[in-house]
Design a protein around this nucleic acid. Sequence first.
DNA 1: TACCAGGAACGGG
DNA 2: CCCGTTCATGGT
Length: 293
Amino acid sequence: MERGQIHLDGPFDLRLTLESGQSYLWWREDGATYGSTDADTWYRTTTRATGEPAPVRVRQDGDTLTWESTVDAAAVLRRRLGLEDDLTAIRAATPDDDLVEEAFDDHWGMRIVRDPPFGGLISFICSAQMRVARIHGMQQRLRETFGTPVTFDGETYHAYPTPEQLADASETELRDLSLGYRAPYVRDTAEMVAGGTRPEEVRGQSYEDARETLTRYVGVGQKVADCVLLFSLEYLQAIPLDTWIQQTIEEYYPDCDRGRYAETSSALRERLGGEYAGYAQTYIFYHLRTGGE
DNA sequence: TACCAGGAACGGG
DNA sequence: CCCGTTCATGGT
């Protein structure tokens, strides 16, 4: 077993980062409901960054992250948890705005995650008209049903299914996991990816071109595409316009409502500072979702 | 019971 | 292009 520590020299909160509705590819070792406020646990996931799926677990104690794995996971964790982002500089570059400042203050340390692209794509296809805890439950069932098991410290971690593993699933099998009408979307998109059309290929395209390209996947509209760009592909300017944010626009930024998704998104992006607008959006989303105003 | 959840596909205008 | 409707499922 390999074990290491990462010294945090900037604001970071592991629980907020992993349980704020950005990623559905981690799970708590204590089994507590996803979205719990108790952070005293290990968070588990797997990574294929070094080849075959490797289990990883990590926990936070103050300004120290401790991780354990079968591989050296330090670099992977830095990337996947957004530790390379200069959060203080990003906040400083975000225009002054009462709602944004309040959200930053209340949830300071939350980072934008970098999920593996395929898992990010499938999990956000599953997110359509669904609550956070249920989206997380779906991903857990997908892992345990179709993912490759690896044992670590006497326990089994199931890797997120590969495109091939999900493409081989039947729609009925997926419906049995309570995916509902999303089942054929997941299966068909997995087949497209297994066939060679990979989401990470959009890297290098302009933000709006990349969003348009991603909507070619079945079950991916502009909102889900924005989630994949923001939480998997490092387009930090992406602003997913979900029902919460649309409600926020009506209430706080009515002049940004241009009637159509692309135009409204663009207007709000400018209002939130452009390059890192996705950070401000993610703080606002979580702030409102947890009862802030 | 009826309504809703981090929407998207589909069909008609 | 735009708009309304439909699509499973489980919680409240």
